[in-house]
Write a protein that binds this DNA or RNA. Sequence first.
DNA 1: CGAATAGTGTCTCTCAGACAATATTGC
DNA 2: GCAATATTGTCTGAGAGACACTATTCG
Lengths: 246, 246
Amino acid sequence: MRRTSKAERDWLAAYDATAFAPFAVTVDMVLLTVADGRFSVLLVERDTHPFRGFIALPGGFVQPDEDLDEAAVRRLEQETGVRRSAAHVEQLGAFGAPDRDPRMRVVSVAYLVFAPGLPAPTPGAGARSVAWVPVEDVDSERLAFDHARVLAAGVERARAKLEYTPLAAAFCDAELTVADLRRVYEAVWAVPLDPRNFHRKVTGTPGFLQPVGRPAPVGPEGGRPAALYRRGPATALHPAMLRPRT
Amino acid sequence: MRRTSKAERDWLAAYDATAFAPFAVTVDMVLLTVADGRFSVLLVERDTHPFRGFIALPGGFVQPDEDLDEAAVRRLEQETGVRRSAAHVEQLGAFGAPDRDPRMRVVSVAYLVFAPGLPAPTPGAGARSVAWVPVEDVDSERLAFDHARVLAAGVERARAKLEYTPLAAAFCDAELTVADLRRVYEAVWAVPLDPRNFHRKVTGTPGFLQPVGRPAPVGPEGGRPAALYRRGPATALHPAMLRPRT
DNA sequence: CGAATAGTGTCTCTCAGACAATATTGC
DNA sequence: GCAATATTGTCTGAGAGACACTATTCG
């Protein structure tokens, strides 16, 4: 820890902190998944003011002694049952327009979470219902606060991240097939991908996937069983998985 | 504007905002430039507590009625004389560890700015001196608050942004040569680049640079005069300018 | 002319996209 | 065998990196 001088300690003792603290800080979570082949976001229906009856991203106030990341992970685990270790969590950014919350001046720090397909959790405090909603079906007009902007930023960030990182695997279970991964890319980017080129590319990118050496059970449509893989150690993809242009 | 019900208005009137506002919010600026071929950041020496005598990123408190972006641009123009139109400004992220400021609970929203080479501005309030410091020469131990982490995040983001956006041009004047742009890439990435391949790549990427049709004045070393370009309309680069690997 | 910088051409290798062909399962 | 999915192979064109070569300036 940094050493402080007597002058600094004296100054600090005389400092009136309340005079400079007119803000509240919240975390909001853009929790994304791919369920049934649809790129979806977790939304709650608010049961309290403000924006009662509107749809919103899950979130809440940061406690005075809590780190931002801590607050996000705590809410994630409490309200959605998603374990931190099973998902990818990263900060998306801060949203702080002066009028974004009618109650008071609130700065919201948004977090982006990628989670495997899961059943909808039970509603927490202040929420009437909770549901996974396909991103394309979200009615921006019905979103509370500035959550339409936050969601749009999260979706765009997710689409970009799949290009340069192996995070698509964060949408899958620990053991996954190449087809599982392809369906994630197809759902998030909303484009069809050639299974043969995708397979060659993904298995040829070092550190992306590591073979388990065991086949997956055959799906309902039959066909040759796929090999199982786990996430590899890479944190960035070389070469990248670029989105088809136009 | 959203219509509110009487129930919501009543509820809002009874809401005690002060009970939930224990935070202060600041903006901190990672202001980067390339001056004399060095990738540099603007740092101030603090003349007030806390961290008096330490080096810090320029920044300050957000006013209660001010948008975050507004606060960042205001400080940029006031404290550094950089005009918004001449620079690129984007949000870097929020930093809010509970103990990051000894005065009180402060969440800092960091902004990343790319500006052309400029003389160091005159020190503003609370600063003893202001200077452009080459990023490699910054002594992390002497940085106030968590500014070492903020700076590291900004530098890494800048390096990544040059790969797939045309923002390298934001470090140059409105009219620039291919060599100007190459020196930006070389300084930010700290790698030498082949001038011939760089030229072919940059002029072959649609929307990156637009020819002015006029040559630049010859430099001090002589040689054939370079053609002048302006920034093109592209917001993303295809193909990308990938960093050399290892 | 020589030195210095700007810009073009050429070669090789990697990789993306199109698509043929083969492999392995359930029925 | 047939349908369905998985996986490998083959071809073509775009692009990256190495580097020879030409162009234009100053002195």
